[in-house]
Design a binder for these strands. Sequence first.
DNA 1: TTTGACATGTCAATCGTTTGACATATGTTT
DNA 2: AAACATATGTCAAACGATTGACATGTCAAA
Lengths: 324, 324
Amino acid sequence: MATIHDVAAMAGVSVTTVSRVLNNRGYISEDTRRKVYSCMEALNYQPNEIARSLLRKQSNLIGLIVPDVAHPFFSELTSHIEYYAYELGSKVLLCNSQLDPVKERDYIDMMKRNRVDGIIMGSHTLEVDVYSNLKGIVTFDRQIDEHIPYVCSDNYEGGRLATRLLIDKGCRKIAHICGNLQLQLLANRRTDAFRHEVHKHGIEHVIIETDMNVFDQNQYEAYVNRLFADHADVDGVFATSDIIAAFVVKVCRKLGRRIPEDVRVVGYDDVNNASWFTPALTTVRQPLKEMARLAVESIRKQAEEEAVEPARMLPVELIERETT
Amino acid sequence: MATIHDVAAMAGVSVTTVSRVLNNRGYISEDTRRKVYSCMEALNYQPNEIARSLLRKQSNLIGLIVPDVAHPFFSELTSHIEYYAYELGSKVLLCNSQLDPVKERDYIDMMKRNRVDGIIMGSHTLEVDVYSNLKGIVTFDRQIDEHIPYVCSDNYEGGRLATRLLIDKGCRKIAHICGNLQLQLLANRRTDAFRHEVHKHGIEHVIIETDMNVFDQNQYEAYVNRLFADHADVDGVFATSDIIAAFVVKVCRKLGRRIPEDVRVVGYDDVNNASWFTPALTTVRQPLKEMARLAVESIRKQAEEEAVEPARMLPVELIERETT
DNA sequence: TTTGACATGTCAATCGTTTGACATATGTTT
DNA sequence: AAACATATGTCAAACGATTGACATGTCAAA
């Protein structure tokens, strides 16, 4: 690969001059500017960003850690983050933690070694101290401690809306399938809201806590099968993700229960999938794109040492489709 | 951030010594080794990979360009690529081209500037010369020219299997929905196979060419609606992706056609989605994970200047589920 | 004639790390 | 005593680019 020296040599000028045209500083005549540009073209010169990063102490790299990009929720999130990073002239370094603490820690260290401008955590299994000593960080729907900014949506309201919809539609016994409540996720607020609503209205209910293992989808089916085996009279299900909801629909169909006549189902997230499904899924929409925007913005601000809001919570929206 | 000098100063040794323990070269006593490690720990030292990359002329970065990670096919591909990159100690730089030639070109230049070890192209809209002058490159299901290695699956066989299944099940009029045939995609072999089979058996058929615009999913629905409006007697559909197939199912349901009794549907790819759908989709499975492995391996080989196979084609498999 | 804008050059330091060449010890074997 | 392995140090160059300081021009305006 050609270096700035090669360009200078070919154009018959000094490297300082080339650098000057490259960075638009000092005086440069139109003549040399053109000459330099044409030499860069001829040599297929691309300034070495690695050298620049070293000098500037800025990599323009944003690290993104998610449990698995193959999961629709995270793939859509990733897509939006990439979009806003590109707008900023930054690049996205992608990592799947598989919720494996070893891999996650490894990735965080790797990112520190690569001097990323910041990390967006869509996953976390580790203790707080690992996250400190990072230029920038923001978590996604996860509150780790007061010093780490996060963006999330109004999980409590989402849980309330979903539960209320099922109650209003006349459900008598409602199941709620959620993730592992031991993990300190903000998503657990949905379960809080579910509990509150269901008690307020005196509705019979059951809560199923899954391992939230994103990767072994067969497990979901087993959970749902068990649910209907143990509680044949369930006529409403509020699942904490659209994928789980899809499995509920699948199992119901196998069991011969009609949706929404016999069982009503509400998902969560409103991933693209939700609208492709037949029947189309009723769900609670998170403003994913806007959340991604705020996350990237937070990293940018931290990199530029501007002040950042420690927490951003965005509104959710109930999307009624065919499963209720 | 602490540098190797800080570590050396704290440990009371020279930077050369620290570098020696870091890279395991030369003689080092157990004593100093321990001392150096504990100082690194205390200072939270992480060797600056940027400086290393500059010296080694190797970034350990693999660039991945896809149309959009939000698309299930590409998100699964990305996930597998990330997996194998991690195994190699490489990192994945993710780019969505949105099939926008400007953005794609911009990204390729960016990757050259960042001296990636290679690019995996899951998308391509550009002329060949842009791809040359790259350390490593491999395309995914796309044959650009003889000098650019690619990995793909047996598209012709996939098309044949899907078409034959519909014929064998007794379909009289089969529709095939494919992408833009102007783009030089290997996926077009599926259409070739469809044409061949359908002629061989004298089956009535119709081919719908879409813009393959991954992002505007409403378009798919419109295409499918038009299909059934124009050809009410279609009783078999072979769609070139599972997502399109999902829309076929959706529209059929709206139109009151039963699946598989009235219309049989075969998708393509076997993305995770396909098995979540109700009814579960019959589809042609591409060995995505293995394809990802080969792509990453090809980049690694190119970076290490080993010889690479110019083309790798993997077998596909017909997965019969509930839509046929 | 002096001043100042314009144009380019030379030189050296800096970013953080690696590496080879070479020096200088202290031990341990022959 | 010579030879050698072990352990560490000093020094400098290299990777590719940026930048500030300063020099040296030319040319036009005051």
